[in-house]
């Protein structure tokens, strides 16, 4: 069993990563980080570069947790990738970050967090950014 963290390089994403790390250490499990770029993009701001990923992996290493990075590209919905990877690694827990969206932003893009909470058939831990 593994703890799955859906990660984007923002404060919320870091909060989710830390929470996932805590949870994995407590359960004695490892972490799979999903960092999925949008298919067809040349540059995706949600993607982490090698150095950044290395730093996070080392942080986990110090706590005895190994991290596997998954960078499968997603099509119209990142939730599909989260579900697929969760099935793939038989995740015991999915950790996501929550952030406030303006009503307009929600109309345009919808809420990924909401769809993960409702549609992924695993326990989900939702984390807020540190105030």
């Amino acid at each position: 069993m593994t703890v799955l963290v859906s990660y984007v390089p923002t404060p919320v994403g870091d909060a989710a990563f830390d929470a996932g790390l805590d949870e994995a250490a407590r359960r004695g499990e490892n972490v799979v980080v999903v960092n999925s770029p949008h298919g067809g993009a040349t540059v995706d701001a949600d993607l982490v570069d090698e150095a950044h990923a290395q730093r996070l992996s080392e942080r986990a290493e110090q706590r005895g947790v190994t991290v596997e990075w998954r960078r499968d590209a997603h099509g119209d919905d990142v939730v599909d990738v989260v579900q697929r990877v969760a099935d793939d690694v038989d995740a015991s827990l999915v950790v996501i970050g929550l952030r406030r969206r303006s009503p307009v932003g929600k109309l345009l893009l919808g809420s990924v967090a909401q769809r993960i909470l409702l549609h992924v058939d695993r326990p989900v831990l939702a984390v807020k950014a540190p105030a």
Partner: peptide
């Protein structure tokens, strides 16, 4: 035809 390569993180 889907020939887009992998996406990259924003370069520094």
């Amino acid at each position: 035809e889907d020939r887009s390569g992998r996406a990259t993180a924003p370069p520094k």
